[in-house]
Design a protein around this nucleic acid. Structure first.
Lengths: 249, 249
DNA sequence: GCCGGCTATTTTGCATTCATTTTTTGTCCT
DNA sequence: AGGACAAAAAATGAATGCAAAATAGCCGGC
């Protein structure tokens, strides 16, 4: 796997003194960065139908910019897996097949499983307490059949675990994959089955228990299985959409 | 988290019939795709010093193209984490701190751990046999103190496990993270310590054993720990570079 | 002699323009 | 009327041009 770039004979070397360089990390500073953030949200929120062709022209006037920064943002979104770029035929919102979803869920499961493992090494008692708090809050939502609140709190719990892993790289990757799935989650709220719901609560209790004991391997297993079950519920839901549980008033 | 894109009132909908659309997945078809592949290899192979500023101008004439496709490729590489783009100050090869490396290794560990878990569900006997074959081959390299061959075969084993997981999404993510680390691996070949080497061999045997028994959780644990140990060896190596084991004749 | 401010040059960011490719539309022929 | 071909229209891909920011070079001051 050798690089095919013509060697100019001029080795590229650093400017000899860039150790304590300031970083200036503000993606929204440049226009393409701004565009990237807005477009990403726009896509993740499901404003564009799956597989819909998105003419650059139209997006340009929507955003009030020229095509150059837009195209740069599109390339990045494609790299992130949110859209796909067909040569000479424009950008489309990526169509997720059932298989894609399964794969995504499994990867998410792996990442959360990892997060749990790492969290056991670094999490503080205070953080555990905070998660317990969220857990009770979620339990309340469960009792009140408040799906929306339940999901929101559930997400915060999982995010807390990821945060406790003290790994920014993991956190970023997690956010990326979560974004890809969120598109689907927006249109279809799965896991509405009562039975699955109760099961999830029990699993969450097991998670907390393992976390308290800092049982890394065990927590890793539980988290993986928990996400695996979520996956199953999600796929089932997509296959035969309707179920019980009326929408909250 | 609401999108900030001005709503033109015109909902974007798909062209009503794009189910069996042909896909045409050839990244190298377009120029920016070609550039992307070449630049990525170029960076991964370590041809540019860490933290080196890379003027667009220079890269353009190196590649014989204009700035537009180059800039698009740079944006993607930045999204992949290989380089970073400082606003108004150009692209730099991403400087990996020790912490970054630790994080990357842990994420890799998580992904391989996941791969092992999934592989247990889907791997065929033939695939296991193939991995055993690689294992013996690697053992030969070990006995002959052939570091290069050892590493190469080692890598093939790990790739085989990932492949056996039957998850393209995972495979892609794995390749991405591997690329980020490979940069470092190119400049510094760690894990040269004899003791660590022997340990790694034992771990590999345990991996094979668990794989044969399709013991998912167990394999997951072993793989994670294996990568964790690799991480430790790598970090140690970077801290105090030299050790025993002379270069192969 | 060294540091700080000012100007000139370089470099980046974005818009615009040019060249292909694709898609659409219109026409002709069967 | 329906389909095939061809030309027009539109969209994408890449190059160029222009404004703003950053870097470097220069001069003066201390």
């Amino acid at each position: 796997m050798k690089s095919t770039i013509p060697d100019t004979g001029v080795p590229i070397t650093p400017p000899a003194g860039n150790g304590g360089d300031r970083q200036e990390n503000r993606p929204e500073a440049s226009l393409h960065g701004e565009i990237l953030l807005r477009l990403r949200d726009y896509v993740v929120e499901g404003n564009i139908a799956e597989g819909a062709r998105v003419p650059e022209r139209q997006l340009c006037e929507m955003l009030g910019i020229s095509r150059t920064p837009l195209r740069e943002a599109l390339k990045v979104l494609a790299a992130e897996g949110l859209i796909e770029l067909l040569p000479n035929r424009g950008a489309r919102v990526r169509q997720l097949s059932q298989r894609d979803l399964e794969e995504l869920f499994d990867v998410m499961a792996g990442l959360e499983s990892l997060a749990g493992r790492l969290a056991c090494e670094a999490i503080t008692d205070a953080e555990i307490t905070a998660i317990e708090q969220l857990h009770y809050e979620m339990y309340g939502h469960y009792l009140h059949r408040d799906m929306h609140g339940y999901f929101q709190t559930n997400q915060r719990i999982h995010e807390s675990i990821v945060a406790a892993a003290r790994n920014e790289t993991l956190k970023t990757a997690y956010a990326n994959f979560a974004g890809r799935i969120r598109r689907v989650r927006y249109s279809a709220n799965f896991a509405r089955k009562r039975q699955r719901w109760a099961e999830a609560m029990r699993e969450h209790e097991a998670i907390l228990d393992a976390l308290r004991r800092r049982a890394a391997s065990e927590l890793s297993d539980i988290l993986f299985q928990h996400l695996r079950n979520k996956r199953t519920a999600a796929i089932e839901h997509l296959t035969e959409p309707q179920e019980d549980a009326p929408a909250t008033p």
